[in-house]
């Protein structure tokens, strides 16, 4: 029996690896094969043709694309992320601290959003059709229907402009006390929590509601089980797969949502770095950031798939 689980899990991992290769291929070609000559960009419009040609050779720009792709991929695998075009610093050095900042933001958000969303989603399903359920549903539809920047700007309007409780911008280097942390992270985390939780609540609720309509839940009801028992003992263990998936998908959305949030609150994270890199067409930096995001997404999804396999009682 465990053999089957192992082979299924290994299968998922293999799929993730293949996907990663395809994705890196896509990222590489999207950023390098399209118009705009890197050497010219680097040296500026006034550079002599000889200088440009020299740089092209030095950067292997004249090699066939597939070679350059493999070269780049090998570099990535060895931890060589390349050098930034914009300021000639190693990409790794540029990313380091900012990556940690983004992770902090994501971790705090996840720590708040996941328990909150699961509780709301499960309880809404438990009391389906009640006023509470309807309120939760309307709220979540409202949140998923508006752009993230609207939630962020509303938060600024309310807490910074009208109430004047919080600063409008984040400066992580000034943080020293708990109060500072609260002030700095409050709005970015609040915004991201809203954005991420809404999806998670909806999907969790849907998963539980679906399991609640199965014959075995009816059977439990006819044994005299109470509503919490029906949900917690009978529905939830069977809804685990879809719920884990919902959590993973929502958290992966964090990766996208963070781009807007970091920009608005001027938070020095990796997403902000990437947006700035786009403005300067700093390709190695863009490529690396993109790969980090894709890797994060794939890890989450694969983890969810494997957890779903583990939680499937039929495979025991």
């Amino acid at each position: 029996m465990n053999k089957r689980i192992l082979s299924l899990a290994a299968n998922r991992l293999a799929i993730a690896l293949i996907t990663l290769v395809i994705v890196s291929f896509a990222v590489f070609f999207a950023t390098t094969l399209l118009p705009g000559d890197t050497a010219t960009i680097l040296l500026g419009q006034s550079a002599t043709p000889e200088a440009v040609a020299g740089l092209r050779t030095a950067m292997h720009l004249d090699d066939p694309a597939i070679l350059r792709f493999l070269h780049w991929l090998m570099g990535l695998a060895q931890g060589d992320l390349g050098t930034s075009y914009a300021n000639n610093m190693p990409v790794a050095a540029l990313i380091g601290g900012r990556f940690v900042n983004t992770l902090k933001l994501a971790a705090i958000t996840a720590a708040i959003a996941v328990p909150l969303a699961l509780t709301l989603g499960i309880t809404a399903a438990m009391w389906r059709g009640s006023v509470y359920d309807r309120a939760v549903t309307i709220l979540t539809i409202g949140i998923i229907s508006v752009p993230e920047f609207m939630i962020a700007t509303s938060a600024v309007l309310i807490f910074a402009v009208y109430l004047k409780w919080l600063p409008a911008l984040s400066f992580t280097n000034e943080v020293s006390t708990f109060y500072d942390i609260l002030r700095v992270y409050a709005m970015p985390v609040l915004t991201l929590t809203f954005v991420v939780s809404a999806q998670m609540i909806r999907m969790t609720r849907a998963a539980v509601v679906e399991t609640l309509s199965t014959p075995y839940v009816e059977m439990a009801l006819l044994k005299g089980a109470s509503r919490p028992r029906l949900v917690l003992r009978h529905a939830l263990p069977n809804a685990l797969g879809p719920i884990v998936n919902a959590v993973a998908l929502s958290l992966s959305y964090l990766l996208g949502g963070v781009i807007i949030v970091e920009t608005i609150f001027n938070y020095p994270g990796i997403a902000k770095l990437m947006v700035d890199a786009v403005a300067t067409r700093d390709l190695p930096l863009i490529q690396t950031c993109a790969m980090i995001f894709c890797l994060g997404y794939l890890t989450l999804i694969t983890l969810a798939d494997i957890l779903a396999i583990l939680s499937n009682p039929r495979l025991r």
Partner: peptide
């Protein structure tokens, strides 16, 4: 599995 905003960023 490429986050949508990211894809937009890269293409732009």
């Amino acid at each position: 599995s490429i986050p949508s905003k990211l894809f937009g960023l890269v293409v732009v």
